[in-house]
Design a protein around this nucleic acid. Structure first.
Lengths: 343, 343
DNA sequence: GGCGAATGTGGTAGCGCTACCATCTTGATC
DNA sequence: GATCAAGATGGTAGCGCTACCACATTCGCC
């Protein structure tokens, strides 16, 4: 009665299971982690003992002994954002019933905060890391490279993954959306953007490439703010842009929140959509196809990005090579009523 | 050179810090956890050693030795939901710079899944637990009562908290919203609801109490579905309800997603809001006040619920008694254009 | 039939940290 | 000046698990 459960609170340990099953502790450990490596009989005995005792392995002891925690660290720039909510949902679903824990960190779009969180996360020796974007600071890159675990950069694609990457081209998304409005005959196509994180910047670059190629570029039509995105901000940005350039006949909105705000503002101001003003959003939130009029937008595969980021990481973790290391999930232009064309 | 960092990967340990600072390991441990209990000089020496070595405590070893992990388990019924996204944001912010980890679990509105996750979470001996609602299964209640850590039930209030509670009355919210529409002169007020989890049920009960008291109750005006809520579902439910009861002159929507769908459907069908149809939502998502027309709704303090749930838990964790154990954060009726009254 | 490989199992020794108790100092109290 | 309390520090012994190596057994193969 000396050593028995003095501090641990009396939960059954692996030693209790081993004693009951009449085997050694290490065999119990193996039977639980790699069932294929013990004999069927041993496994059955151990499973029975686990059942009767209600044994639950202690993840902390496991992590300490194996120097590796069953934790997947996830770094997102925002928790407010609908976009990342979908990604996170995909991540949880991608786990299936694998017994990993998600450890989420919110970088608030700050490289320094990302570094800090990365350091905290690495302190736990995570099984894998999922980070957003590809604009990590040099210090963060070093940390990721030395992480000693699979790393997946999500939401974007580029040529130099730290390890693996899954996402799509924001530049192309911006370009395709803008080109669509050009094709529909809009001439004075504006850009409305909030937050202007690196991905927003690349969408803007895509917009600019398209309007410049068509000879329609006018810097006065670009209206951005570092403020976080919201529907009401969409209203404000439209009012502001129209005040400066009343000839505006279409807007490419950096995301669907802004597009919705623009739509509401048009209703309020009596601006006819799509005849007087074309609207195109980005992301394809669920509501865009039932809005009135329905809103053209770029559908991005956010859920799928999260889900597959996890499966890629787990695949690599189990020793298999993951090809390709950079996975482009693309996007779809969803053409709807809001860009039917000017009068 | 035998025992030194054989498995640990070469990270500095508390022993390395102790050696460098010329003190014992336990003093380092104390200096880090309870700085007030060591002398200033000792603390300075240790801090310097920590700095030079870049020492980061191993949370797993700490959890194992102390039988308590710096983890707060959070159980939410959905990750898709805007409502819980705000709560989660509040939870993260409530943490401030306290070094706790959030461990999130998604119950998918299932009591059984909640039990399972609770068991997994308790396996880590969390520092605190935050769970949604007050309709836990009896087994889940047992687990919570025996958790040996602070427990906060969020989103709702009731008379029998497991430990602590923070939220508001959904019944009252439903009643007040409905009463408002009655006061504005609407006579055929419908209820549209999706998912119909316990909180939705109580909002419905509040609706019913109000219309019954006014002698306006008609079961044909209540249209609910177990399907998950969405904007497009709001469109469908309105169409369906109008087909069944064309005299409908107002709807109380179970949440803002549905309300937005109803609004869009009205635009599409040419139904004048608020004259032909009054609309009231629930939650006050950001977009509701800029929608056209702006939508009356019940503002709920979701962010604040998350934030204060954490502070309550941490307060109790540090030994202080938390009064009151049941905290009603209330709600606000935000009166806007969509319920200005019938013609 | 002997050899190495493959397979299954167990013993030992920690992983890095903290609970617990012991010890030592200091200052206050009578 | 002896006694005690309070505060500061250290030593020891694990927390529950797994890495590593050792050992036993079986099997295939020339």
């Amino acid at each position: 009665m000396k050593s028995r459960s003095r501090r641990g609170g009396g939960r059954p340990t692996i030693a209790d299971v081993a004693k009951l099953a009449g085997v050694s502790a290490i065999s119990v450990s193996r039977a639980l982690r790699e069932p294929g490596r013990v004999s069927d009989e041993l496994r059955r005995q151990i499973e029975a003992a686990v059942e009767t005792l209600g044994y639950v392995p202690d993840p902390n002891a496991r992590a300490l002994a194996s120097a590796r925690a069953d934790v997947i660290g996830v770094l997102v720039p925002s928790l407010t954002n609908n976009v990342f909510a979908d990604v996170v949902r995909g991540i949880y679903d991608g786990l299936g019933d694998r017994s990993f824990q998600i450890q989420m960190g919110n970088t608030h779009y700050s490289g320094l905060e990302e570094e800090r969180l990365l350091q905290v996360f690495l302190g736990q020796r995570p099984a894998a890391l999922i980070v957003s974007g590809l604009d990590q600071t040099p210090a963060a890159c070093k940390l990721l490279e030395g992480a000693g675990c699979p790393v997946v950069q999500i939401m974007e694609i580029g040529d130099h993954p730290v390890d693996m990457m899954i996402g799509f081209s924001h530049f192309e998304g911006g370009r395709v959306a803008t080109q669509h409005m050009i094709d529909r005959g809009y001439k004075r196509i504006g850009f409305i953007g909030a937050r202007m994180d690196p991905r927003s910047q690349r969408r803007l670059a895509g917009y600019r490439a398209a309007v410049e190629a068509a000879g329609l570029y006018d810097p006065r039509l670009v209206n951005t703010t570092p403020a976080p995105s919201s529907v009401s901000l969409g209203c404000e940005l439209l009012r502001d842009t129209l005040a400066r350039t009343p000839t505006l006949d279409a807007v490419f909105c950096n995301n669907d929140d802004l597009a919705l705000g623009v739509l509401f503002e048009c209703h309020r101001a009596g601006i006819e959509v799509p005849r007087k003003l074309g609207i195109c959003g980005f992301n394809d939130l669920e509501m865009m196809h039932v809005a009135f009029p329905s809103v053209t937008t770029i559908r991005t595969h956010r859920y799928e990005i999260g889900r597959r980021a996890v499966t890629m990481a787990l695949e690599k973790l189990s020793g298999n090579n993951v090809e390709p290391a950079v996975l482009d999930l693309g996007f779809e232009l969803k053409i709807r009523e809001s860009t039917a064309g000017p009068r």
